Amino acid sequence: MAGVQRPRAPHLQVYRPQISSVLSIFHRMTGCALGVGTLLLAWWLLAAATGPEAFATAQGFFGSWFGRLVLFGFTWALSYHFLNGIRHLFWDAGLGFELSTMAKSGWAVLVGSVAITLALWVLGYAMAAPQGVPA
């Protein structure tokens, strides 16, 4: 029995990446990113509660080009994870397992997450822009 070779399960080196496998990896990655983003949100809230100096430091970070890039990535991760979670809810109900439906819903999640992210940022910048001086 000691010399019997047990078969190994195929892994990423064997299978060609498909939309569902790539989106599954993205779902896990965005889940981790959301955890880190939540810690950053907690830092910002604690800084706001601590005082003006701490809040200015946090605002300085989030207002920098790198901080805005982090916030943009957090927004995309949140919208992607949300939409892909809805996709998984349909799967839990036994719907959408046909290969063509899986591919279409996967692309819809990708396109939808980018569209939601861009719409939120355009809306955010539009609302933050200084309004005209009232007459």
Rank of each mutant, 00 (worst) to 15 (best):
I116Q: 05
I86G: 08
Q13G: 13
G94D: 06
A2H: 15
A126I: 00
W121K: 03
H11L: 12
A103V: 13
G67C: 04
F66W: 14
A2R: 15
I86P: 00
V4F: 15
F90T: 03
L45R: 08
S20V: 11
L69S: 11
G31C: 00
Q5V: 12
A77M: 00
S79C: 10
L23R: 05
S113A: 08
F61C: 09
W76Y: 10
T38M: 14
P52E: 11
S100A: 15
E53Q: 14
P7R: 11
T75K: 05
F62D: 08
G3C: 11
M127Y: 04
H88N: 09
W107H: 09
I86S: 04
F82A: 10
S105R: 11
G85D: 02
C32F: 14
G31F: 01
A115V: 03
A115S: 00
V14S: 12
L41G: 13
Q5M: 14
G35S: 00
A115C: 01
P17A: 05
A135L: 14
Q5A: 14
A42W: 08
L69W: 13
A9T: 12
F55I: 03
W76K: 05
P7G: 09
A58N: 01
Q131T: 10
I116C: 01
R8C: 06
L78P: 05
F66A: 12
Q13K: 14
P134Y: 00
A48V: 07
G132W: 11
S20F: 07
L39T: 02
V109D: 00
Q18G: 15
G106P: 06
E53T: 08
A49R: 09
M102C: 10
L89C: 13
F72C: 11
R68Q: 15
G124V: 05
V70D: 04
L120W: 09
I19L: 14
W65R: 15
G73S: 05
P130F: 07
L39H: 04
F90Q: 09
M102H: 10
T38R: 06
G37V: 00
G132C: 07
M1V: 15
G60M: 02
A135H: 11
Q131H: 11
M127N: 10
A115E: 02
F90E: 06
A135E: 14
T117D: 04
V22L: 07
Q5W: 10
T38H: 03
V14T: 14
S21C: 03
Y15D: 09
G37N: 05
G106N: 04
V36Q: 03
L110P: 03
L71A: 15
P130K: 09
H88G: 12
Q131V: 07
F26H: 07
G67N: 01
A49D: 02
A48G: 02
Q5T: 13
Y15N: 09
A49E: 03
S100R: 15
A135P: 15
S20E: 12
F97G: 05
L83I: 02
A119W: 03
